[in-house]
């Protein structure tokens, strides 16, 4: 996953406006894969990932170059950047006081699969809503 980390770093530069740096570097480190507008529409990615100029194969590493055959990257894929579930739970520790930390809920603790709620190519889903339809909007913003 080194290339993704490099990309992340590059992404931050991008945000800082160091545009010229990026283009050539990314091309050099990513496998050949043309992202057509149709593909972009079919597999949109989240704005926060888009900002970092992610390419398909940054996440779908070692899965060939045929997007239709790509598989879900599972927790391991997400956590290669997002560290650990405990780390994510700790980041929202302030929510523990009211028992509303979605990454450390009363019911599941820091154990849920990432894609129980977070989806990359479609709208995410907040699982808490299935029983706490009224409370969730008071507890947290929309699931990124």
């Amino acid at each position: 996953m080194r290339s993704k980390k490099t990309l992340l770093a590059l992404g931050f530069f991008l945000i800082l406006g160091v545009m010229s740096l990026v283009g050539s570097e990314v091309k050099a480190s990513s496998p050949q894969l043309n992202i057509t507008p149709e593909m972009k529409e079919k597999f949109p990615i989240k704005p926060h990932h888009e900002k970092l100029a992610f390419k398909c194969t940054d996440c779908h590493e070692g899965q060939g170059d045929e997007p239709e055959n790509f598989k879900a990257i599972e927790d391991k894929g997400c956590l290669s950047c997002h560290k650990t579930k405990q780390y994510l739970a700790d980041r929202l520790k302030f929510m523990d006081a009211l028992h509303t930390n979605p990454h450390n809920s009363i019911h599941d603790g820091p154990k849920l699969y990432c894609d129980e709620c977070h989806y990359e190519h479609k709208k995410s889903d907040n699982m808490c809503l299935s029983c706490h339809s009224n409370d969730v909007k008071l507890w947290m913003r929309a699931t990124p």
Binding site: L129, S130, C131, H132, S133, N134, D135
Partner: peptide, 8 residues
């Protein structure tokens, strides 16, 4: 009826 599922 004012919430989904079990709720509060």
């Amino acid at each position: 009826p004012d919430e989904r599922g079990f709720g509060v």
